[in-house]
Computed example of a mutant assay.
Amino acid sequence: MIILGLTGSIGMGKSTTAKMFVEAGVPVHDSDETVHRLYSGRAAPLIEARFPGVTANGAVDRQKLAGEVLDNPAAMRDLEAIIHPLVRAEADAFLTRNRDAGTPVVVLDIPLLFETGGEGRVDRIVVVTAPADVQRERVLARPGMTAEKFEAIRARQTPDAEKRARADYVIDTSLGLKAAKASVNDIVRQLSGGDRAETSR
């Protein structure tokens, strides 16, 4: 089984690209979705114990949590020490299920793949990218996002140029959905050795 790592900086189009892999018949483990679920479940009391007041009705208030950890490296490390092992355990279970099922290719969608040293967990790496002005426009259009918050998030991420240099495949999402989907289908065909991706067209 080939494990494909999908990553990219904030606003680069990773989530949309992940959906294209699903449409091409490739199982995807979404780290962001897993975090969202954990924030409403078993991670919530652990986070509340470290950051009192950031939960409501048993779920993490992401805005309140962001206020605690952004621009606070020590607090961010504490949060990561709580959440990363939980996400890793779910990803490992996903890989085991698919390996047992004989799945030829799977995707681990990991936003901080390089930042967390996750290269060793995957066989190939796909980086999604876009020009800096496109990235900024996309991110600032998100509800609750500010220029300051965007810069704080980007400062924690490996530079886009370095990610592209370390990737096996690069998908420029600024070229449009059709081009991105064609790139995804090409990658799937190469890695699976067949025409599985044709069914998504």
Rank of each mutant, 00 (worst) to 15 (best):
M1Q: 11
L4E: 13
L4H: 06
L6T: 09
G8F: 01
S9V: 09
S9Q: 14
G11H: 08
G11P: 05
G13D: 01
K14G: 05
K14L: 09
S15F: 10
S15C: 11
T16S: 14
T17A: 08
A18P: 00
A18L: 04
K19P: 03
K19L: 15
F21H: 05
F21E: 03
V22R: 15
V22M: 14
A24M: 07
A24E: 03
G25F: 11
V26M: 09
P27W: 00
H29G: 02
H29S: 06
S31H: 02
V35W: 02
R37T: 02
R42A: 13
R42F: 12
I47Q: 12
E48I: 07
F51Y: 09
V54Q: 12
V54S: 11
V54T: 12
V54I: 13
A59D: 09
R62F: 04
Q63L: 13
L65C: 05
L65T: 05
L65N: 10
L65D: 04
A66W: 08
G67H: 00
M76F: 09
R77C: 12
D78E: 14
L79V: 02
A81N: 14
I83A: 03
I83Y: 10
H84E: 06
H84C: 09
H84F: 09
P85D: 00
P85A: 08
L86T: 05
E90W: 08
E90K: 13
A91P: 02
D92R: 02
D92E: 13
D92F: 04
T96D: 13
R99K: 12
G102Y: 05
T103H: 15
P104L: 03
P104S: 06
V105L: 15
V106C: 07
L108W: 10
I110P: 00
P111M: 01
L113C: 13
E115V: 00
T116F: 08
T116C: 13
G117Y: 00
R121Q: 14
V122F: 05
V128Q: 00
T129I: 09
A130V: 13
P131M: 15
A132W: 11
A132C: 08
A132I: 06
Q135H: 02
R136N: 10
R136F: 05
R136L: 12
R138M: 01
A141P: 03
P143L: 04
G144Q: 04
T146F: 04
E148H: 14
F150L: 13
F150N: 07
I153W: 01
R154L: 09
P159H: 10
K163I: 06
V170E: 01
V170L: 06
I171V: 15
S174F: 07
L175D: 14
A180F: 01
K181C: 14
S183F: 06
N185Q: 14
N185W: 10
Q190K: 15
G194A: 13
R196Y: 04
A197T: 04
E198P: 15
E198Y: 15
T199W: 13
S200H: 07
